[in-house]
Write a protein that binds this DNA or RNA. Structure first.
Lengths: 201, 201
DNA sequence: TTACCTATCTATAAATA
DNA sequence: TTATTTATAGATAGGTA
């Protein structure tokens, strides 16, 4: 998509890597927006720069759990302007793969340095910690809900079994609400579609 | 990027919306992968279809909290139904050769060390953050195991129900253990509109 | 940086099998 | 319906200011 085709590997030149990052990041988020509009689906894109900055897209009309999580997180950081989560400077001199730049240890050290510095910078740390808590809370909440549904379903099924054993007339059975639980998607070229659980409203 | 320019609004025709969804979803995830490789950054893309299915991309070298969560989520699903029973069953006993158990044990020990360590009052930010992550991961793993057990039971019960429906002669349900491929009606009607809610695992 | 420029490459809308 | 083809719209790599 440019003057030349480029190899699919890490761009070594720092400057052009940064430029490409900026361009492609914008492009990715634009495409995410288009997908969400054209196809009327929920899309979330999260990009963490090597300096720990987060760029994101979450379509506003989303109602899914994860999007809610991300939105919640977004709200919590809105006061501090965009992309301020753990926006710390890491002058890591790790000679090896820069993919590991943002290890927790590195990040923590950076945050500590950040805290020792002047300014209201610790606000960003709070943003980060708030994000951590929110994600954990949301994860727990979501899993609890799903587990609850599974238990409910199991209870229904147990009742069904009991009924069928106790009253073995071949009556018309009620819907079990489980028929698509084990559905598997065939498209695994790039991603792994994950099953979701039907929820009656 | 096609024969014609299209308006940026929801595609009304269901068929072409589905086709566009499939194409653009693949394209989005491809671009996410390219961005993560070329620029060596962490990228996560989540797409929830209207049927509640989740398509995702999270680059493997990511080390951010969110990516870790999503990755673990992905992993737990990928391993679904494979060799997970043994791991669960051996959990009670002392450390076994199972990597999963070992990992869990290591995690618990680490957490215990932190909790029982002498310098608890001097808990540093680094320790705190690591602890937070460990607790979150442990929670996820534990709940994943529980969920797998629930699903197993759920599947057994579904088979049982299917068998009892298909063979409504009242029998002892224990002799239905053979894997009988009974199918459930696909065109059943729900009394209420079924809404699917994407859930984290 | 910070942004435009534009030749090329890529994604994809529509057609077709 | 799903896969393949093709013509175009769109994204962007390397320049330039």
């Amino acid at each position: 998509m440019g003057r030349r085709k480029i190899e699919m590997k890490r761009i070594e030149d720092k400057s052009s890597r940064q430029v490409t990052f900026s361009k492609r990041r914008s492009g990715l988020i634009k495409k995410a927006r288009e997908l969400s509009i054209l196809c009327d689906v929920d899309v979330a894109v999260l990009v963490f720069s090597n300096r720990g900055r987060l760029y994101e897209f979450v379509n506003s009309s989303s109602s899914s759990s994860l999007s809610q999580i991300l939105k919640r997180y977004q709200d919590s950081t809105a006061a501090d302007g965009k992309a301020s989560i753990a926006a710390v400077e890491t002058e890591q001199s790790s000679p090896s793969s820069c993919a590991e730049v943002q290890t927790c240890g590195e990040l923590v050290k950076s945050v500590e340095r950040y805290l020792e510095g002047p300014e209201l910078e610790n606000l960003r740390l709070e943003d980060f910690m708030r994000l951590e808590r929110q994600l954990a809370d949301a994860l727990v909440q979501t899993r609890t809900r799903k587990e609850k549904l599974l238990k409910q379903e199991n209870e229904q099924l147990k009742d069904e079994v009991a009924n069928l054993i106790g009253i073995p007339k071949s009556r018309n059975h009620k819907d079990l609400g489980v028929n698509n639980l084990m559905e598997v998607d065939a498209d695994r070229q790039y991603s792994q579609p994950l099953r979701t659980l039907p929820l009656l409203r």
